[in-house]
Amino acid sequence: MRATDYAGIRQILTSDFDVPADRITPQSTLEDLGVDSLGVVELVDILGEQRGAPITDTTLRPTMTLEDFLSTALAGTAP
């Protein structure tokens, strides 16, 4: 996981999902941060827009850690 990717998702979670920054770690699950399955869809859309490439992976789940989520979501998208 690149630091810029982590910083980006951290910013999205704090600004768009109102997650306190001190709760966010690479090992946090989205579920632990209050992001449900609909939130995952929204998060994927935001990440895809920011990167300029749609994210089409359907295995993304709220039970994934941020580290795993980013690795899976961003595999195959443009940097």
Rank of each mutant, 00 (worst) to 15 (best):
L74I: 09
G34H: 07
L74H: 01
L74V: 05
A75P: 02
T56L: 13
L70P: 01
V41P: 02
Y6A: 10
G39H: 03
L30G: 06
G8E: 14
S15F: 03
A73S: 11
L13R: 05
V19T: 10
D16Y: 11
D5N: 14
P62L: 03
T58I: 08
D18K: 14
L70E: 02
P62N: 04
R23Y: 08
L33K: 05
M64P: 03
E49I: 10
T59L: 04
R23H: 13
T4A: 15
F17V: 05
G8I: 11
G39W: 03
L38K: 02
Y6K: 09
A75R: 15
A7Y: 02
G8C: 12
M64Y: 05
D22I: 05
R23S: 13
L66C: 05
Q27D: 15
P79I: 12
L43R: 01
V19H: 00
G48I: 09
G76I: 14
I12Y: 03
I12E: 01
R51Q: 09
L66Y: 01
G48K: 05
Q50T: 07
E31A: 14
A73E: 08
V35N: 08
T59K: 02
D18S: 15
D32N: 11
R23C: 08
R23N: 12
D68E: 14
D36R: 03
T29P: 05
D32Q: 15
D16L: 11
D32M: 14
F17H: 01
D36V: 09
T77D: 10
T56K: 07
E42R: 13
T65S: 15
I46S: 00
I12W: 02
D18H: 15
D22V: 10
V35L: 10
L43P: 01
T58P: 00
G52L: 13
G34W: 07
D32L: 12
A78M: 12
V40L: 05
E49Y: 04
A78I: 14
S15G: 08
L70Q: 06
Q27I: 07
D57W: 04
G52R: 12
D16R: 15
F17T: 07
S15M: 08
T72L: 09
A53N: 13
E42A: 14
L38A: 14
R61S: 15
G48Q: 09
I24H: 06
S15R: 12
A53W: 05
E49K: 11
P26C: 13
S71F: 08
G76P: 06
T14N: 06
L33G: 09
I24D: 04
I9N: 00
T29Q: 02
V40E: 06
R10G: 02
G48S: 06
P54R: 15
S71I: 13
L70H: 01
F69K: 01
R61D: 14
V40T: 10
Y6W: 06
P54F: 09
T65H: 08
D36T: 11
R10Y: 02
T4K: 11
